[in-house]
């Protein structure tokens, strides 16, 4: 039972971090209808800046720098590339983002090389004992921070003018423009927010028990894609649910791997994608998605 609880807490924590990534993904999709495959490299960029800066300016300043840098990279990708790519179809734009992702990831992995970069976080490998279960401090912090960010985000989305503009644009961009909403700004802000959230996620993907940031981190971030998709690409609550489902499934599968050998090794890594496929077969627009149904 204790093992299960530990796995569950870890899973929820990892899931909350995936949810941060998925949320950025969903925000961009809502604002622009573009499926943004650049997301993993935004995350890598944020993590890279934190890793390189913390020996120079300390962890907290480096974290801030990483968040700003990832937001900036996101905004630049939107402003310099997507805004200028006058292709009619969203599908082509998605492929453009794959191209940008490959460029960014190649450059970043070249810089990282074979190193494993520490992010200089203050939690290290300390653990917390809560009754019978033992959890890494980083996991608890990740859960708290991701939870707080998600709550702040959802509040802003519901109550601020920015949120109203976002939702109006998501529902009907032309009519939003008729209301004076500047679509360029909406899309720019979506990319910047997504970048910032990705940088925070990068931190928690790279701290204990993970050894640090390496060239494989982008692949880990990829697991947030199924999270976003199975929740419903255009649903913020879907991103949360998707993140949690993916995080918990993956952690449990990895935790009970010895019992699950009949499914093959590495089932934990494949689990998010399996869950996604099963859910999409049952509900093509994802758990909370509306897009497809609304267009019928």
């Amino acid at each position: 039972m204790a093992v299960f609880l530990e796995l569950l807490v870890n899973g929820v924590s990892v899931g909350a971090v995936y949810a941060l990534i998925a949320l950025g993904f969903v925000v961009i999709f809502k604002a622009t209808e573009v499926v943004n495959f650049t997301h993993a490299s935004l995350l890598l960029a944020g993590g890279y800046v934190i890793a390189r800066m913390h020996p120079l300016i300390g962890f907290w300043a480096a974290l801030a720098a990483g968040i700003v840098a990832a937001a900036l990279v996101g905004a630049l990708v939107e402003f310099l590339i997507l805004r200028r790519a006058h292709v009619g179809s969203r599908g082509v734009l998605a492929i453009v983002t794959i191209g940008v992702d490959i460029l960014l990831t190649t450059e970043l992995t070249r810089r990282i090389g074979t190193e494993v970069l520490a992010l200089g976080d203050p939690w290290g490998d300390r653990v917390l004992r809560l009754g019978p279960i033992t959890v890494a401090e980083t996991r608890v912090v990740a859960l708290a921070v991701a939870g707080a960010l998600i709550a702040a985000f959802l509040l802003a989305f519901t109550f601020t003018g920015w949120g109203v503009a976002m939702r109006a644009t998501a529902e009907d961009a032309e009519t939003a423009a008729l209301m004076g909403v500047r679509l360029g700004r909406v899309s720019l802000s979506a990319w910047a927010v997504a970048g910032a959230l990705a940088a925070v996620a990068a931190l928690f993907l790279c701290v204990f028990p993970t050894p640090g940031l390496d060239r494989g981190t982008a692949a880990v971030a990829m697991k947030a894609f199924p999270a976003a998709i199975l929740g419903g690409l255009d649903s913020t609550s879907g991103a949360l649910a998707g993140g949690l489902i993916v995080g918990v499934t993956e952690t449990l599968m990895n935790g009970y791997q010895s019992e699950l050998v009949f499914l093959g090794r590495g089932i934990g890594d494949a689990a998010p994608f399996l869950v996604m496929i099963v859910i999409l077969l049952l509900r093509p627009s994802g758990l909370f998605g509306t897009k497809e149904q609304a267009r019928v």
Binding site: G161, V164, A165, R167, E171, M179, G180, V181
Partner: peptide
């Protein structure tokens, strides 16, 4: 904006002022 409330629709109309 069908998924937004009436009040939110009005708010959307006033985003530029």
């Amino acid at each position: 904006f069908a998924r937004m409330t009436v009040a939110e629709n009005l708010r959307a109309g006033a985003l530029s002022v």
